[in-house]
Structures are given as C-alpha cells and as structure tokens.
Amino acid sequence: MAVEQHGGSEEDGGFLSESQKERIRAFAKKFRSNTKAMVGLVIVLSLIFVAVFAPFIAPYEMNDTSVEDRTQAPSVEHPFGTDDLGRDIFSRVVLGSRISLYVGFGAISGALLVGAVVGVVSGYAGGLTDEIIMRVMDAAMAFPPVLLALTLLVVLGPELVNVIIALAFVYTPYIARVSRSAALAERNEAYVESAVARGESDTRIVFSEVFPNCMAPILVQGSLNVSFAILAEASLSFLGLGAQPPRPSWGLMINTGRGFMETAPWMLLFPALAIGIAVVGFNMLGDGLRDVLDPKVEAIE
C-alpha cells in the first residue's frame, strides 16, 4: 500500500521520508520550547491518565450512598467531601473525567471526520459546490452552539451518546470553515498544478495531496474545539438535557451542588475546578499548537 502510494523511484520515496522526518524533528523541537503547548500537553495527558485508570484512582464506588455521611466537608477519608447522598465527591470527579473526555473527543472526532472532508472538498472544488456547502454551514452557525445542541437533544433524547451526536453536528461547520480556507490556500500551490498536469484524478489530488497539507490548521481548530465541547457538555448536563443521574458528569454534579451552595459549597467547587482544568489544558494545547504550526508566525519571525 505504502509503496504504491509513493509510486515514483526508490530515491524519490527515500527523499520524501527523510524530509518528513526532518519536519517532524523540527516540529518536536519547536513544540518542546513552547511552554504553553507543553503545559497543555501535560494537563491533557494527565487527564487521559486519570480517565483511563479512574476505577483504580477512585477510592470509593461512585454510586455508594451512605445516609450518615451526607454533605460532609472535605476530610482525610473524603478529600473533596461528600454529596447530598453521601457519595464521595473525589471518586465522582475522577470518574467524571471519563464522561468529559468521552464527549469531548467523541464529538470532535465526529466533527473532524465530516467537517474536514466537507471543508477541503468545498475549498478545492470552488464555484457553485463551494457556495452551496458554505451557505448550509452558515445556516448551522447562525444558531448559538448551546441552543442548537439543546434543540437537537430534544429530538434525540437526553442521553450521553446523543450529546456527542448533537455536539458533533454543532462543531462540524467550524471545522469545515477552517478546512475550507486551508484548502483554498493550497489549491493554487505548484504541487497541485503539477498533479493536475500529471493527469491525476481530483479525488486523488484532494485526499492524498491537498488534505495532508491542510492538517495543521485543522488539528489546531480540533484541539480548541475539544475544550468547547467539554464546556458544552457541562452546560447541557447542567440544564438537565445531557448526562442523566446517577452518571458522575461534572455539569450534573454542579447542578445538584447548586441547591447546597450555602451548606456544602464543595459539592460545586470541585467539579467546577475539574472543568476549569480540563478546558485550560485543551485551550493551552490548542493555542500552543497554533503558535508552533502557524506558517504566518514563522514568516514574521
């Protein structure tokens, strides 16, 4: 497969992979020297670690209720305190990371899959196809994101899988728009002209040549959108239309904690802190990636 894709002579293939290696090394070096990107990466990796090993990290079962332990302040046994049903908040926050990441990555993977293809094809095709696709995307972006997700959830029903579907739908146009402008810029590059001159099909040019060159801005947008999706899931669950009890969604925990603001503020504070850290992590990673990958910044320097 790989041999077939590279085609050409042996030397050609060797040269390409060497230059790619060089580019990856340069990228890694720039990435390491960018504090924001590194801090973001560390936070995101820690979150993934916590989510993967959540059952081993959480000291209690997330749904273990206990009447005598209701709304206890943080202590050695319960570092984040307990909620109104006597459940350990630390355990629930730890397990809640799974929901946030599941929704964040799930929704954005869906949006990336559809949005990147639609956007790149639209930008490369141009003309009427582009016009029609972009107008439809405009219409989807004319709704405030949370409102659109809410409306879709009414149709789909309040379930976590549906939250992912709804948010994938909401963020697709944002990815598509970025992919389109990347493809527009690539369309006039010499390598596309020479591919056309070689008589390659449009499908091949779009997917094996233009597409890989649009990856940088698409990935930046993707990682920033993961943080939006995490925020949106929290908002939807807070409104009662996302994850349903007894799932340990951070947004849902905040919704419950709201009623105990005076007597047990820790019910609200710790899940809130968790959301903040997750969002800061993805934002920093996205911002850092933009600094590292953005060719415009490089040109100025």
Binding site: L231, A234, M261, A272, V280, N283, M284
Partner: peptide, 22 residues
C-alpha cells in the same frame, strides 16, 4: 484572561452567586 475563557459562563454565574450573594 485565560481563566476567564476557560470556565463556562454558568460557572462564573454560580461563583458570583456563591461569593456575592451567599
């Protein structure tokens, strides 16, 4: 600025209620 962006609006609302009202 970074902290401001990184929290959902409803959370700021709750934090404000907690601090200034409660």
């Amino acid at each position: 600025a970074f902290i401001g962006i990184s929290m959902p609006i409803f959370l700021w609302g709750l934090v404000f209620i907690l601090v200034f009202a409660v």
